[in-house]
Design a protein around this nucleic acid. Structure first.
Length: 844
RNA sequence: GCCGAUGUGGUGAAAUUGGCAGACACGCUAGGCUUAGGACCUAGUGCUGAAAAGCGUGGGGGUUCGAGUCCCUCCAUCGGCACCA
């Protein structure tokens, strides 16, 4: 009879339908009980789900089901990060519209998530590519503009001359265009930026509160923000037509300022060309700047990039000693960091050292190692700065009245001096840069701006939102953004003066959409960005789950956006400054020692797994093979193992189902059970409740939790059939089966629902509360005491709980095995850990 | 180079606070059941050793009655960032 066999395919369909019909995971606008908001980072609708998705959403679904059982109102929504480059590439390739491709993928992937048994509140589903979503983003943009949090400036992009188009970093392969394979170059464009730097300090200090975030993510963000202390100093042009021009430099080592032998400007620095003209070196410098510009961004930031530069023919004055040093432009100086100009101290900086050697510039030692009197290796510490830069802190020398002062002190004093002389002063510097959000693409949220010849960049009025994407567009991959080719889209009257203007043809970075979707999910009202009441009930996220690759970019941007939304008044203050209390970064899925990826050809298709083994096996394997945060090594045999286990559960409970149907769970006291095997089974069952609950509560150690359920199942298999005849034995068996099913349900929901129904369980198992354990059942009747001699295990004692120390010592020392090791020796010390261990320390 | 993480059987991994290392599973071995089985059930399985016993958590050192766990040091692997002045 097929009804008796374990057939996952039929079960999957049956229960998925029941859950959907009963709207198991729909929660109202307000939680009635304590709330729990769990969210997996929403997927990009790339076509089909992969094993990384399976892992990510299995983890989330288990947490959602577990917390629901624990009595929370659980918000567990799902949506689609639907804008992005792949859709546009697919459109170019297949001559279709990105929307067609995207919506088709969403349809398919939604079905796949359902087939995995993942439960979401589908009423809250959203796709970021719909106007009803991105209209609010356009509103945020306008408000940010008003607050000065969005602004325009020149920025460099990758450019393909032959396609006449902008390229994303990922469209540049080895310095060549992905489509036509011609060499790429760079181009300066005016682009929109979000002022993340305004929040640098807060984003940094906020990290302190993220106790529930992995340490490595916190540390990566700290480095990304990159706060450093130093000084700004003004070097003034000494002579020529531009004499008196101030050049501000930033340095983290003001203590080395007396060692400056030249100053370098970034090639893109606004003064570079002007000063070169003044110095009569226009031609050389122009050629150099042009050369640097030709090299694409990726290559230029390569570590092995050769350090080069040219003199501008101008001298600048050191603010500390008035010394005149030559001014250079150098390719390793970055325009985006600090002031775009650096003072060069070859003796104490490796890059400057290399540069000085190449162009035969002087090297002047101004820092010597701090030598303590007891340091016999002092001579070895003092290297020759002509050979190698000495980059550590030390004591100043050749530094006028600062000679002999220690570096740290000198840094403060020199900065203070600069500040007093109004030639600079102490500065705090961040590596964090403002977020460039303009993308020269079609498939994104249009930037709601109209450019007018007389009024400039004018925001689209709120009542005219959304600015929707035009449909009459062809996708060729060449030329300007498709938005610029749509006449209907492009032309619009200026909202200020009414004259004909031109719309901004850029769209926003897709990271903008993913910076606020978690807020949108929390609001069922859709005619406002979000309903303050609803949102304040659900936020912040109790648990956020996603790949570690988002540790900096996404996880920083959404922390930024959360604050911005609050400061713009869209989000109530009551939800707190941080969007997510806890973050879980799940590990990558590996196969054959490499990350699963299409290009490596080592992918496993979840579809075929679900078809062959069912959703539960697929979920179980991805949760059992490794703890969530670790790399998951794929193993076909491991999948078989999970399937075998579920079959074992089936074969344990299914044959008993009819018999157990009318039987109540055990209700007597634990002590009353007379059959030792049955007593042991019940003890194990309750111990398992304890263990599984603790394992899940402790960083979601699902693998350990599943292992203990396996132990319980093994224990149940071991009970001899003939012991099950009396009434209380059957009640314990019933109770045990219920425990197995309830504990296993979050991991293998379909199989357990079916068995629950078959043993006559009431309602849906997913709606049943989590179990608490009977403390009497968990209490051990005999304790195992470890007996050690000199820390080595020699015997086990089995004693009643509460046996006193003296008695333990007596029993332990009289044990025959222990006697072998202590007889004829002196017991120096005896350590007794009550309930655990006795250790004899002996000497010959 | 910097930052972070991880090193435990043939394999994936367990081990809340320092207290029986290797739970659970895969694989392997043997047996049972079976016409057959890559199904299922049972038992065994860290290494050396006939045994007694000894050795075992990347290497070395330390603290401790006792260390996978704490401290120092070195090595390896992985991930992220990388001309940041």
């Amino acid at each position: 009879m097929s009804d008796e066999n374990y057939e996952p395919a039929t079960l999957d369909a049956k229960w998925q339908k029941r859950w959907a019909d009963q709207k198991v995971f729909e929660v109202g606008p307000e939680p009635k009980k304590k709330k729990y908001y769990v969210l997996e980072m929403f997927p990009y609708p790339s076509g089909t789900i992969h094993m990384g998705h399976v892992r990510n959403y299995s983890i989330g679904d288990v947490i959602a089901r577990y917390k629901k059982a624990q009595g929370y109102d659980v918000l567990h929504p799902m949506g689609w990060d639907a804008f992005g480059l792949p859709a546009e590439n697919a459109a170019i390739k297949n001559k279709t519209h990105p929307a067609t491709w995207t919506y088709k993928n969403i349809e398919y992937m939604r079905k796949q998530f359902v087939q995995m048994g993942c439960l979401f509140d589908w009423r809250r589903e959203l796709a970021t590519c719909t106007p009803e979503y991105y209209r609010w983003e356009q509103l945020f943009f306008i408000k940010m503009l008003e607050k000065g949090l969005a602004y325009r400036k020149l920025s460099t992009v990758n450019w393909c001359e032959s396609c006449n188009t902008v390229l994303a970093n990922e469209q540049v392969e080895d310095g060549k265009c992905w489509r036509c394979e011609s060499e790429t170059t760079t181009k300066e464009l005016t682009q929109w930026f979000f002022k993340v730097t305004e929040y640098a300090e807060e984003l940094l200090s906020g990290l302190e509160d993220l106790k529930g975030w992995p340490e490595r993510v916190v540390s990566q963000q700290r480095h990304w923000i990159g706060k450093s202390f130093g000084a700004e100093a003004e070097f003034v042009v000494a002579e020529g037509p531009m004499a008196g021009t101030k050049i501000a430099i930033f340095t983290t080592r003001p203590d080395t300022i007396f060692g400056v032998t030249f100053v370098s400007l970034a090639p893109e620095h606004p003064l570079t060309l002007q000063l070169a003209k003044a110095g009569g070196r226009e031609k050389e410098v122009e050629a150099f700047v042009e050369k640097v510009r030709k090299i694409d961004k990726i290559k230029r930031t390569d570590a092995n990039f050769v350090k080069e530069g040219v003199p501008l023919g101008v001298k600048v004055k050191n603010p500390m000693n008035g010394e005149e040093v030559p001014l250079y432009t150098a390719n390793f100086v970055l325009t985006d960091y600090g002031t775009g100009a650096v003072m060069a101290v070859p003796a104490h900086d490796e890059r400057d050292h290399a540069f000085a050697l190449k162009y035969q510039l002087p090297i002047r030692e101004v820092i010597v190692p701090k030598i303590s009197q007891h340091d016999h290796f002092a001579e070895q510490l003092t290297g020759d700065v002509n050979e190698k830069a000495f980059t550590e802190l030390g004591v100043l020398t050749n530094s006028d009245r600062f000679s002999g002062v220690e570096s740290e002190k000198a840094q403060r004093e020199i900065a203070a001096y600069l500040s007093q002389k109004k030639l600079g002063g102490p500065r705090t510097q961040y590596k964090l840069r403002d977020w460039g959000v303009s993308r020269q693409r079609y498939w994104g949220a249009p930037i709601p701006i109209i450019h007018c010849n007389s009024c400039g960049a004018v925001p689209v009025p709120e009542k005219d939102l959304p600015v929707t994407l035009p449909e009459d567009v062809e996708f060729t991959g060449e030329g300007a953004s498709p938005l610029a080719k749509s006449a209907k889209f492009l032309k619009a009257p200026c909202p200020k003066c009414g004259k004909e203007g031109v719309r901004d043809t850029d769209t926003m970075d897709t990271f903008v959409e993913s910076s606020w979707y978690y807020v949108r999910f929390a609001s069922l009202k859709r005619d406002v960005p979000f309903d303050a009441e609803e949102v304040s009930k659900w936020l912040p996220l109790d648990q956020y789950i996603g790949g570690v690759e988002h540790a900096t970019m996404h996880c920083l941007y959404f922390r930024f956006f959360h604050r911005v939304l609050q400061d713009l008044g869209f989000l109530p203050k009551s939800v707190g400054r941080e969007p997510a209390k806890n973050l879980l970064n799940q590990g990558i899925v590996y196969k054959d020692g490499a990350k699963m990826s299409k290009s490596k050809g080592n992918v496993v298709d979840p579809n075929s797994l679900i078809a062959k083994f069912g959703a539960d096996t697929t979920r179980m394997f991805s949760l059992f093979a490794a703890p969530p945060e670790k790399t998951l090594e794929w193993s076909d045999q491991g999948v078989e193992g999970s399937f075998r286990f579920l079959g074992r559960v089936w074969r344990l409970i299914q044959p008993l189902a009819a018999e157990l149907k009318g039987v109540p769970g055990y209700s007597g006291t634990h002590r009353e059970i007379v059959t030792p095997e049955i007593k042991k089974l019940r003890a194990k069952a309750h111990l398992t409740i304890k263990k599984v609950t603790e394992d899940i509560d402790r960083d979601f150690h699902f693998n350990a939790a599943i292992a203990s359920i396996m132990e319980l199942v093994n224990e149940a298999y071991g009970v001899p059939k003939e012991k099950l005849h009396d009434v209380s034995a059957r009640s314990v068996l019933r109770e045990t089966c219920e425990i197995i099913l309830r504990l296993l349900n979050p991991f293998a929901p379909h199989t357990t629902e079916e068995l629950w129904e078959r043993i006559g369980g009431a309602g849906l198992l997913v709606d049943q509360p989590w179990l608490s354990f009977d403390p009497h059942a968990v209490e051990a009747e005999t304790l195992t005491i470890v007996v050690q001699v000199n820390g080595k295990l020699r015997a086990n004692l089995f004693v009643a709980p509460g046996t006193d120390q003296k008695e333990l010592e007596r029993l332990a020392s009289s044990d025959a095995k222990v006697q072998n090791f202590i007889a004829g020796k002196t017991v120096v010390k005896t350590i007794v850990v009550p309930g655990k261990l006795v250790n004899f320390v002996v000497r010959d």
